[in-house]
Computed example of a mutant assay.
Amino acid sequence: MAASKLWHEVDTDEHVVLLAEDEFFIRFDIADELRQRGCQVIEAGSADEAIDVLRSTARIDIVVTDLWMPGKHDGFDVARTVREERPGVSVVVISAHLKPADEHKHLFDLFFPKPTPSERLARAIVEMIDAGPARRTADGA
């Protein structure tokens, strides 16, 4: 289901995670783990969808984004949008490619290489939300 059909359904009593991942099975697995930990998940199959959600009035506690996705925008654009338009929201980057270069470190709070077990990723995301906004660390390892 497209992100544009989900953000109005978010139950604000739970943590809200915006998950931008173009690979369906990876997105499904991570979203399932997060939901098992009591989070509401807004799924975006592209960076374009994620940016639309970020520019809406939806409550978002944390953004998890892949870096390399097809379309007009990528995960770097998602992270830039968060920093510019939602500065209190943390960004977790997941990528099968190399860790982002030093000049991009200001765009994210936590990095996880793919593949990272979805239960480990979900646990770290919930811990980050519980710890408070924008706890900056460079690596999820």
Rank of each mutant, 00 (worst) to 15 (best):
A138T: 14
V16T: 15
G88E: 12
A20I: 02
D13I: 10
E23S: 11
I51S: 06
G132Y: 02
V16M: 02
R83S: 07
A58T: 08
H97K: 12
A96P: 05
D52P: 07
E23H: 14
E43S: 08
D130P: 01
R59F: 01
A131I: 06
A122Q: 05
E21D: 03
R55E: 14
V10G: 02
G132R: 07
R83F: 00
V41I: 03
T65C: 01
L6E: 15
F111Q: 05
I30G: 04
V126L: 04
E9F: 11
A20E: 05
E103N: 15
F24A: 12
I42W: 03
A134W: 07
A101N: 10
H97G: 14
L18C: 00
A122M: 01
V16P: 04
A2Q: 12
E49D: 10
V89Q: 03
I51K: 06
R120A: 10
D102R: 14
D52K: 12
P113H: 08
M128F: 04
M1S: 13
F112T: 00
V78C: 07
T137D: 10
V93K: 06
K105N: 10
L98S: 14
T12A: 13
I30E: 04
R83Q: 11
A47P: 01
H97S: 13
H97T: 13
I26Q: 08
I62A: 00
K114F: 10
A47Q: 02
S90L: 08
S56W: 01
V41H: 03
A101E: 15
P87K: 11
E43R: 07
R55F: 05
V91S: 04
A3T: 06
E103C: 10
D77E: 14
D102A: 15
K105T: 13
W68N: 13
E119I: 12
D29Q: 09
L107M: 08
E49K: 06
H8K: 15
S56F: 00
E43H: 03
A131E: 12
R27F: 00
I30H: 03
A131R: 11
I129S: 00
E9K: 15
L19E: 05
Q36C: 09
R123M: 07
T12M: 10
M69Y: 01
G45N: 09
R136D: 09
S4R: 14
I129R: 00
D61E: 08
R59A: 09
I125Y: 04
F112K: 01
E84V: 11
V78L: 06
D66I: 01
S118H: 08
R55M: 12
S56G: 07
L98K: 14
K105H: 13
T81F: 09
E43T: 09
T81D: 07
C39H: 00
V93S: 03
D77K: 09
L107C: 08
H106I: 11
T65A: 00
S56K: 07
T57E: 13
D66P: 04
E14N: 13
Q40E: 15
K105Y: 07
V92S: 03
R136S: 10
F111Y: 15
W7E: 09
A138P: 11
E103I: 11
P100W: 02
V92K: 02
L110I: 12
L98F: 11
T65N: 03
R35M: 10
L107A: 08
L121H: 06
F108H: 07
E14Q: 12
A44R: 04
H8W: 10
A79W: 06
G38E: 09
V93M: 01
I129L: 00
S46H: 08
